[in-house]
Simulated scan of single mutants.
Amino acid sequence: MIAALWKPVQRDAGRHYTWGGDNDGWHLLQRHDLSVIAEHVAPGGREQRHHHGHARQFFYIVSGRAVIELAGREVALAAGQGLEIPPGLPHRFSNPFDEAVDFLVVSQPSTRGDRTDD
């Protein structure tokens, strides 16, 4: 178990999934109490509005720009900016821009089984 602490994590095929057509995600850390995902969203990509009953999330933009709809209000984010989303708050990540966006989403606890589409 402790040997895994010294093994770097990277985006690779074994951790990869796709969503919404042209969008990619990589599970960097998958535990029941904490999840870290790297995502790449193509121009025009967006997710379904939803909320989590227990998970608190933090979205951090690595490159590009994005908009997060949060309880009916839009918050624009650029590279180097992040936004916390508390449990129960409806939200939707979108990329209405002409360039792809790369970001990290950290969830505590994991969102597995904790998502309800609105």
Rank of each mutant, 00 (worst) to 15 (best):
A78Q: 15
I85K: 12
S107K: 13
P86H: 07
G88V: 04
E74L: 03
G82M: 06
L89C: 13
S94A: 14
F97C: 08
E99V: 05
E84V: 13
F103D: 11
L83E: 03
P96M: 01
G80C: 10
G72V: 00
G82E: 06
F93N: 02
G80S: 10
P87D: 05
L77T: 12
F103M: 13
P87T: 01
D102S: 14
N95F: 02
P87G: 01
E74N: 08
V106Y: 07
Q108P: 06
F93K: 01
S107M: 11
Q108N: 13
R73Q: 15
V75W: 02
P96E: 03
V106H: 05
G82T: 06
L89M: 14
P90E: 00
Q108K: 13
H91Q: 06
L89N: 09
G80W: 08
S107P: 08
A100D: 13
F97V: 07
N95W: 01
A76D: 13
E74F: 03
A78G: 15
P90D: 01
E84D: 11
V105P: 06
P86N: 08
V75L: 07
H91P: 00
S94Y: 11
A79R: 05
V106D: 06
R92M: 15
I85N: 14
V106Q: 05
L89S: 11
A78P: 05
E74S: 09
G80P: 09
G82L: 04
G72T: 01
P86K: 08
L104P: 12
D98E: 13
V105R: 04
R92N: 12
L104Y: 15
E99R: 10
F93T: 03
D102Y: 10
V101Q: 07
V101S: 06
E74R: 09
D102F: 08
G72D: 03
S107Q: 13
Q81W: 03
A78N: 11
G80N: 09
L77N: 10
P86C: 03
H91I: 00
P90T: 02
V75T: 09
R73N: 09
V75P: 03
A76F: 07
Q81H: 05
R92D: 08
H91E: 00
A100W: 06
F103T: 11
V106K: 04
G72W: 01
